[in-house]
């Protein structure tokens, strides 16, 4: 792996078996196996994609719905294992793909902060240190010991964002989540991401808002139906994308 790169994707292919109906009972599986009806439709979500993202870059990914953007983010963050090809990443990754993964709504916010922190792989000691920061940032001091099922979705998202961005990760992956909470909180989120960008964190952003990508990114990739259509400096790719 090139030491100047934060992420290296080599010839990534991601296939999904799209069986017409999901076969998940033994009887059905057996019947179909015997009658040779175990047919799958192979769906290629990513087709031979190779991307190098240099350290400290702000990298945008453009594409229509279903072009493989989210699949790519999941491959980079290790949630999905690619069918073919290799992924190499340097350093810690903070995936802001889904906020508040693992929140148990029966537990209180305090308990969930620790639970979610450990889901992201942070130690108890680290969470103790950062607990106050998280509470301050999310502005949820008054509701810490309320079960989270009584929270509004905006309140849940605030806590999720506060936990996910509490570290200075080497790689930050952002999937359309700058739109959480009210406008004031959105501003706060964007400020925090900007602070990370200025702090040499490699940022990978997926967004449908071209303005946002143009404003934040240095380089861009354009995915179309799972294939890499274009990659290069942000403005060039954005212009081509708009003029397609």
């Amino acid at each position: 792996m090139n030491p100047n790169n934060a992420v290296e994707l080599k010839n990534i292919e991601m296939h999904f078996n799209m069986s017409k109906e999901k076969v998940d009972s033994i009887k059905e599986y057996f019947l179909r196996f015997v009658t040779r009806k175990l047919l799958y439709e192979d769906f290629v979500a990513l087709n031979d994609v190779s991307i190098d993202i240099p350290k400290g870059d702000v990298f945008g990914i453009l594409g229509l719905n279903g072009s493989g953007k989210s699949t790519m983010l999941k491959v980079i963050s290790g949630i999905l294992t690619p069918t073919k090809g290799t992924v190499e990443t340097a350093g810690t990754i903070a995936p802001l793909i889904e906020l508040g993964a693992g929140f148990d709504l029966d537990l209180t916010a305090r308990e969930n902060i620790y639970l979610n922190g450990s889901v992201l792989g942070y130690s108890k000691k680290f969470m103790d240190e950062k607990f106050q920061d998280i509470v301050d940032f999310s502005e949820m001091q008054d509701f810490l010991d309320t079960p989270m099922k009584n929270y509004s979705s905006g309140m849940v998202a605030r806590i999720g964002f506060a936990i996910a961005t509490i570290t200075k990760p080497d790689i930050l992956i952002v999937d359309e989540i700058l739109a959480v909470g009210d406008f004031r909180f959105q501003q706060k989120c964007e400020d925090r991401i900007n602070a990370m960008i200025n702090d040499d964190t490699t940022v990978i952003i997926v967004s449908h808002s071209i303005e946002q990508i143009e404003r934040l990114c240095k380089h861009c990739a354009w995915l179309e139906k799972g294939k890499l259509r274009m990659i290069g400096p942000c403005q060039d790719v954005c212009d081509a994308y708009k003029n397609q």
């Binding site: 148990d104 029966d106 537990l107 308990e111 620790y114 639970l115 922190g117 450990s118 889901v119 792989g121 942070y122 130690s123 108890k124």
Partner: peptide
């Protein structure tokens, strides 16, 4: 992820 293991067990216990 050993803290996660601990937290999941304590969650089950609390619930």
């Amino acid at each position: 992820f050993s803290p996660l293991l601990f937290n999941l067990v304590s969650r089950d216990f609390k619930i």
